[in-house]
């Protein structure tokens, strides 16, 4: 069973929403990535979204753009990203890893070769921002062939009609983009997001995660009240950056732990 499915089943039994932190692989350097991933799980991450750095991240805000630039300047590439996942898996066989990024580095690596290598390294899901369902039929089939879930974005602009075409290919969970914009921008309109999540539930049995614009423990707690997963990226990436390379893993833990705590229902902690 794919680790993503297993983890969501477990969380359902516990009555908890998943906490999914995002970090860019290779930031601040490729040598730090595995430690940061472990720090995140020790702080309560249920799954991890690991960014594949790209020179032209068109859906990302300034924080993740800068993270990509730092990672690339330190020599990060897809082979390195997969090596980090492999390194992480030596001590953690259970935490699902979802890679998030853009299509061109994968094209250059070779799509088939990449999917095989990702499966070998222990990748569970792939979210390719610039590969909507219209362009991904083949990729979707090939990823499934390797046991990897392709995760799709749903936006406030996604029509009812399109929802069904997204769901036809979506596996693992659905990632709802909480507002029209880029990563790290804006503030959360919890009421609207909750309503949208309800609307999406009419189209799928898959768990629904919410991301973009979740910055604090309070945001995370509110979203956990109606969604199955909470993704937190830019605020975490920024906190890790501010701590400096030497303290990056420690900063990741310090940032995430209180968010995990805020999301955990009291009866579960008792």
């Amino acid at each position: 069973m794919n680790r993503i499915d297993a983890r969501f089943e477990e969380l359902k039994r516990q009555g908890r929403a998943a906490l999914i932190p995002y970090v860019t692989a290779g930031d601040p350097t490729p040598d730090h990535t595995v430690d940061i991933l472990h720090a995140l799980t020790s702080a309560g991450a249920d799954m991890i979204e690991l960014g594949m750095p790209f020179s032209d991240p068109m859906a990302d805000g300034p924080v993740i753009q800068a993270a990509c630039e730092r990672a690339l300047s330190q020599g990060a590439d897809l082979a390195g990203v997969l090596a980090s996942v492999d390194g992480f898996r030596r001590e953690d066989a259970d935490t699902p890893i979802i890679l998030m990024g853009y299509m061109n580095p994968i094209e250059r690596f070779g799509t088939q070769e990449f999917l095989r290598a990702a499966a070998r390294a222990g990748v569970d899901g792939l979210l390719i921002v610039d590969l909507p369902p219209e362009e991904s039929a083949e990729f979707n089939r090939d990823a499934a062939g390797q046991g990897i879930h392709q995760v799709f974005l749903v936006a406030p602009t996604t029509s009812e009609a399109r929802l069904d075409s997204v769901m036809a290919q979506a596996r693992g969970f659905v990632y709802y983009v909480s507002f029209k914009g880029i990563t790290g921008a804006s503030h959360l309109a919890t009421g609207e997001v909750s309503e949208a999540v309800g609307r999406i539930r009419g189209h799928t049995e898959l768990p629904i995660g919410v991301g973009f614009g979740i910055k604090s423990a309070d945001d995370a707690r509110q979203v956990a009240g109606f969604a199955d997963a909470v993704v937190i990226g830019s605020a975490l990436v920024d906190a890790v950056f501010r701590a400096g390379p030497e303290h990056s893993a420690e900063a990741a833990h310090r940032f995430l732990a209180p968010i995990h705590q805020a999301m955990t229902p009291e009866e579960a902690t008792a």
Binding site: P132, E134, T157, T158, R162
Partner: peptide, 12 residues
């Protein structure tokens, strides 16, 4: 060619 963009732009 094609439509290689993030979901938010698909409707537009």
């Amino acid at each position: 060619g094609g439509l290689y963009v993030a979901e938010t732009l698909m409707a537009a």
